[in-house]
């Protein structure tokens, strides 16, 4: 909606223009970033530990390689992950099971960080529906992930999109707040400024059933990306599920993939 509005507004003036500007950024507090997933697919699973950098810094993010990383579940399993270098830690024995709650403990730079996530029940991802929208000036494609939302309330879904095997750097979240227990017909809200889907494109969507806190994290990112004229929703750091001031996310979720070529 808001995209449409701003497009029309710019069209109206016929003079709207963009330029890259130089801004002076405020100092950044470098924070520990923990990024890890447990899925219902067979392992190994990985936890990545890095640090945030100043916006004006063009180097890659520094990694944390001497941390002690442990994951346990509520079925009594526990293991210490093996460091692989480049900030990556790998599981050996752990199995991702639907309904289990996983606890992550990271000891890094004399600080302890913990996080918990519960893997929700899997909702089958049936297919991808591609809707063709023809206007006089152009043809657009809407991508609708087809699944049946269960009758129980509180389901959250995240979608990772690849177009022609290239990951799309946008966040897509759906939930059952408006249409509980119905077959989904909502499309993914793609920002068309950055991504134009064309005929013969290969579309790959991975659907994740995620828990509430993980969904809240991504919803914040979605709203910020949708920021309207003059700033819109005031941006902020999304609420991480990791304790002690670390940023990032630890998510236990199901995954299921579908691929379709745009006709």
């Amino acid at each position: 909606m808001r995209n449409t509005v701003s497009i029309v507004l710019i069209a109206l003036t016929l003079t709207g223009c963009e330029k890259v500007v130089n801004l002076k950024y405020k100092d950044n507090q470098s924070r520990i970033i923990i990024d890890g997933n447990i899925t219902n697919e067979t392992g190994p699973y990985f936890i990545k530990i890095t640090k945030s950098v100043n916006l004006s810094n063009t180097e890659s993010n520094p990694t944390v390689d001497n941390a002690v990383v442990k994951i346990s579940d509520d079925a009594g399993n526990s293991e210490t992950l093996a460091p692989e270098g480049s900030g990556i830690y790998r599981t050996n024995t752990l199995i991702g099971v639907v309904g289990r709650t996983y606890t992550l403990t990271v000891l890094a730079e004399n600080q302890t960080y913990t996080a918990q996530s519960t893997m929700p029940q899997q909702v089958p991802f049936d297919s991808i529906k591609i809707e063709k929208v023809v206007t006089s000036s152009e043809t657009e494609y809407n991508l609708v992930p087809v699944y049946n939302d269960p009758t129980q309330k509180g389901n959250n879904y995240r979608f990772a999109l690849l177009v022609n095997n290239k990951p799309v750097n946008q966040h897509f979240i759906q939930n059952d707040q408006l249409r509980n227990g119905e077959a989904n017909s909502f499309r993914l809200e793609i920002n068309g400024d950055d991504l134009k889907i064309k005929s013969a494109d290969s579309i790959e969507i991975t659907m994740q059933c995620i828990d509430q806190k993980v969904a809240a994290f991504y919803s914040t990112l979605v709203l910020m990306a949708d920021s309207g004229p003059g700033g819109g929703t005031t941006p902020s750091n999304p609420q991480s599920n990791i304790s002690n001031g670390a940023m990032g996310l630890f998510s236990a979720h199901t995954v299921q993939k579908n691929i379709k070529v745009v006709q």
């Binding site: 950024y25 950044n28 507090q29 945030s52 950098v53 916006l55 993010n61 005031t234 940023m247 990032g248």
Partner: peptide, 16 residues
């Protein structure tokens, strides 16, 4: 509010 920093999650850049 402009971002002050950046980090990477799931290969996507996120602003701090």
């Amino acid at each position: 509010t402009f971002p002050t920093g950046r980090y990477v999650m799931n290969d996507m850049v996120i602003y701090q």
